[in-house]
Computed example of a mutant assay.
Amino acid sequence: MTFQAERKSEPILQIKNLVKTYPNGTKALKNVSFEVPKGAFLSVIGLSGSGKSTLLRCINRIHEPTAGSIFFEGQDITHINEKHLREVRKNIGMVFQHFNLIDRRSVLNNVLMGRLGQLNDHFLGGIFQKWPEEWIADAHEALKIVGIADKAYVRADGLSGGQKQRVAIARTLVQNPHLLLADEPVASLDPSTSYSVMNYLRDLNQKRNITVVCNLHFLSLVRDYSTHVIALRNGEKVFEGKPTDITEQWFKDIYGADAKEVEIN
C-alpha cells in the first residue's frame, strides 16, 4: 500500500522581511517574516510599542511598508494601486480596539458600513442610506449572531463597550472577509466581556473558516483561542510557534526578565 504525500496548502498570508520606518526615524518593524495558514487563528503578542498594531496596519495597507513584501491569497499586495487595494480590502476585515463606529448612526447602519466597498456609488448607502434589502437582512442576521439583534435601531453611542465591539464584529461579518485582522479587540473591555467577544471571533474562525490575525496582551486568551502565535519585541519577531510552546523562559524573553504573567479570568 502506498500513501500520497500530503500537500501543504498555500498560506493565506505571507509576510517577507517586512520593514516599517516612520518619518521620525522610528523603526517599528525590522525584517519581520512569517506565514499564516488558511483557517488559522494567529495571535500576535508583545509589549506595547513592539510593533503589533503597525504590523496589522501594514497588512491591510493603512500604513505603507518601507521594505519587504506582503502576499495575500498568493498576490503581492505590497505596492498595489488604489483600485486594486479596494478590491483586496473587500476580503480583509478589520476590528479595532476603539470600535470605530459612527456614534450618531444606528447600530444597523454601522453594520451596513461593512458593505460600502461593494457599492458602485458609495454615497447611495453612505448618505441616503438606501441599502439593498438583502444587505439589510444580512446585517440583521449578523447582529443576531453576535447577540444584539434587539439593538439594531439604537444609536451606537447608547451602547456599552462590549456591545460596541460586537457591532464592529458584525460589521466585519457582513463583509464576508477571508481574513480578519483584530487589533487589541478586548483591551478596553472587562474580563467577562472579553471572553464573550473572543468567543465570537473564534466562532467566525471555526464555523465560517475565516482566518484571524489578532493582537493580544493576555497569554491566557492566547492559549484559549489561538492555533498559532508570533511574538514581537522592539519591532523584531522573537518567537513563532504554538501556544503550548510558550514556556516561562520564552515569556521572559518576550516580555522581559522581570515580567510576571497576569491571567484574565
Rank of each mutant, 00 (worst) to 15 (best):
S9Y: 09
I145A: 11
S196Q: 13
S48M: 09
G162W: 08
H217K: 14
Q4N: 15
H178Q: 15
N176V: 07
Y200I: 11
D253H: 12
S106V: 08
K30T: 14
T247D: 02
Q97E: 08
H84A: 14
L101G: 00
A182T: 06
F96G: 08
V222N: 04
E261C: 10
V174N: 01
I145T: 04
E134W: 06
R89M: 04
V44K: 02
L232V: 03
H98G: 14
E134S: 09
L143N: 02
L232Q: 00
D183T: 08
H122F: 15
V19W: 07
L143D: 01
W135D: 12
K207V: 09
F218W: 08
A182S: 12
K242M: 12
V146C: 09
L56D: 07
I80R: 01
D183N: 03
N215I: 03
H178K: 15
E87W: 07
V174E: 02
K52G: 09
L29E: 01
E10L: 12
P191R: 04
L85F: 07
L221D: 02
H178L: 15
G256T: 05
I77Q: 04
L173D: 01
G235T: 00
N91E: 12
E248T: 09
E236R: 03
K151V: 11
H140Q: 08
N205A: 08
L181N: 05
L204H: 03
Q129R: 10
G49Y: 02
L159D: 01
L101I: 07
V222E: 05
Q14F: 03
Q129A: 14
A137Y: 05
H122Q: 13
K130N: 12
D138L: 14
K252R: 13
G39D: 05
L180N: 00
Y195P: 02
L219G: 10
F34W: 11
I136L: 06
P132A: 13
P37Y: 13
L143H: 03
K207C: 15
P65E: 00
R115D: 08
W131F: 10
